[in-house]
Amino acid sequence: MRDCLDINHAYEILGLKPGVSQVEIKRAYRQLVKIWHPDRFIHPQQKEQAEAKIKQINAAYNLLKSESPTVTTPAAPSPKHSPNISVNRFDAESFYNYGVESVGQGEYQEAIAYFTQAIRLNPRYIEAYKYRGFVCSQLGYEYRAASDLNKAAQLEGKIPTVTSFSRVKYKSQRPSLVAKWCQKLKKLLRWR
């Protein structure tokens, strides 16, 4: 089904205009799935129609989520027409920004996924570790939060890394760093 679906039709199925962000695409997809989920219908004919609609929605979403956001830059002007060059911008900073946007909208699971993707693209992205640690802390994932915040501290050189050859004893430094960063991030979010 995906082969016969073009991108403009996919946007139309989800009720969106071309060029919207991945966050908006996901939001529209979730709303439509809630409306058209076959389990909501009792009558067999309605259930069958809902299954067909869900297949269309899933195909459209899968096509659009694989599309990367683009930035259109005008090329050198020509007398007859000026073509546009599309540049893909799917870097760690973009995912980090999507994560920050998701946190602002209260979509914490999506934010964690975006921060994780940013870290995959740039394993030394300190701010992504800090923000993901804060979000995990907000959701009650304390061990994961501590891990992320400790990794950020290691990257900043504030605490030494532990190797298999040397053991470093942490007194009360680890919990205080975690608590300190959580407090800083909480203050940052309150100002937004």
Rank of each mutant, 00 (worst) to 15 (best):
A179R: 05
G133Y: 04
E142K: 02
G19F: 06
R89D: 02
Q49W: 13
R120K: 14
K158H: 07
E127A: 00
E156H: 03
S102P: 04
A75Q: 13
K55P: 08
R89A: 09
D3M: 09
R190C: 07
Q56M: 15
L121G: 05
E156Q: 01
C182M: 04
F165A: 13
I13A: 03
P123K: 04
S66C: 14
I42Y: 11
W191F: 15
A113V: 03
R192G: 04
Y29M: 07
C136I: 00
S78P: 07
Y129I: 07
V87I: 15
K65M: 05
L14R: 14
S176H: 01
R174T: 05
Y11M: 10
N122V: 03
Y61M: 03
K171D: 02
A10I: 04
I57F: 06
K47P: 04
R40W: 06
E24A: 13
A179N: 08
I159H: 00
R30W: 11
L189I: 03
Q183R: 10
C4S: 15
Q49K: 15
V162Q: 01
P175Y: 00
S137F: 01
L139W: 03
V33F: 02
W181T: 11
M1C: 11
D148N: 06
Y108V: 02
Y131H: 05
L188K: 07
Y131P: 03
S137L: 09
F41N: 06
I35K: 11
S147P: 02
D91P: 00
P69Q: 12
K187R: 12
P44F: 13
E101M: 07
Y61T: 05
V20Q: 05
P44T: 14
A10H: 10
V168M: 08
K186M: 08
A50M: 09
Y170F: 11
K47R: 15
R167F: 10
G104Q: 11
F95W: 09
E67C: 15
K169R: 10
K26Q: 09
F90A: 04
R144M: 05
I25M: 06
A153T: 07
V33I: 12
V100I: 12
H43E: 13
Q138N: 11
G104W: 09
A76V: 14
Y96T: 03
K187M: 08
I85T: 14
D91F: 00
Y114T: 02
I54Y: 00
V100H: 08
K169W: 06
H81Q: 14
D39E: 14
F41C: 10
I13L: 06
V168C: 09
E156D: 05
L189Q: 02
I85K: 11
N150Y: 06
G15E: 09
V33P: 06
W191K: 15
L185Y: 01
F90Q: 05
P38L: 13
K180T: 03
A145E: 02
T73R: 15
A52Q: 13
D6S: 06
A50T: 12
